[in-house]
Simulated scan of single mutants.
Amino acid sequence: MSQVDELLAEHGTTYAEEAGIKLADKPQPLYRLLVLTTLLSTRISAEIAVAAAKELSESGWRSPSAMRASSWQERVDALGRAHYVRYDESTSRHLGDAAEFVEERYRGDLRRMGDAADGDPRRLEKLLAEFPRIGGTGAQIFCREAQAVWPWLRPYFDRRALTGAGKAGLPTDPRRLAGLVPGHELARLAAALVRVSLRR
């Protein structure tokens, strides 16, 4: 087994997979990825953010319209059940605002955001940064995961993934790194490298 195979076997679960999201180029999974990205975009552990994404999903808020129909307090309570407590009140507000933004700007379908980016990853980052709470780091998280279903994003390795590549003794040039796995495995490789970069 090669070093990359071992890396994928040990750390190659994407955050979307961990949150129970079967990512596909469809409105609901893409929206759920946006919610997960919002939760990961605060100074809170990825483990808690993933748990919060699961809790919101289990509460039935898997679409922008469902999220908007929930109350601020219901969302605060769901985040609390997942121990997402330090930012629960502000995040509840941001989730409501973001759901409204998805419906107004993209008519509830984030594939329209992908179309608006017109094949340009940097443009997509800017569009993502228009959402509440999602800044540059959050935009990179979304793109890193979305390359699994949007091939035009590939290869997408942000600074954190490239830091992990360096720690793992792999190339830190994105094109060389991308040559180590088939295209459909790039999201898993990026996730594995991020996990390596976070290890002490």
Score class of each variant (00 low, 15 high):
Ser2Pro: 04
Val4Asn: 09
Leu7Glu: 06
Thr13Trp: 05
Ala16Phe: 05
Ala16Ile: 09
Lys22Tyr: 11
Asp25Val: 15
Leu30Ser: 01
Tyr31Ala: 02
Leu34Trp: 04
Ser41Cys: 06
Ile44Ala: 14
Ser45Asn: 12
Ile48Val: 13
Ala51Asp: 13
Lys54Arg: 14
Glu58Thr: 06
Glu58His: 08
Ser59Gln: 12
Gly60Phe: 13
Gly60Tyr: 14
Pro64Trp: 01
Pro64Gln: 06
Ser65Val: 14
Arg68Cys: 10
Ala69Cys: 05
Ser71Pro: 13
Gln73Glu: 06
Val76Ser: 07
Ala78Cys: 04
Gly80Arg: 15
His83Leu: 13
Val85Lys: 15
Asp88His: 11
Ser90Tyr: 11
His94Asn: 10
Glu100Val: 07
Phe101Pro: 02
Glu103Ser: 15
Arg107Gln: 09
Asp109Arg: 05
Arg111Glu: 05
Asp115Lys: 13
Lys126Asn: 10
Leu128Ser: 02
Phe131Gly: 03
Pro132His: 02
Arg133Cys: 00
Arg133Met: 03
Gly138Arg: 08
Ala139Arg: 10
Gln140Cys: 13
Cys143Arg: 04
Gln147Ala: 07
Val149Leu: 05
Arg154Ala: 11
Phe157Tyr: 15
Asp158Ser: 01
Leu162Glu: 01
Ala168Phe: 00
Ala168Gly: 00
Gly169Arg: 07
Thr172Cys: 03
Pro174Gly: 15
Arg175Tyr: 15
Arg176Glu: 14
Leu177Asn: 03
Leu189Cys: 08
Ala191Cys: 11
Val194Pro: 05
Arg195Cys: 05
Ser197Gln: 01
Arg200Asp: 12
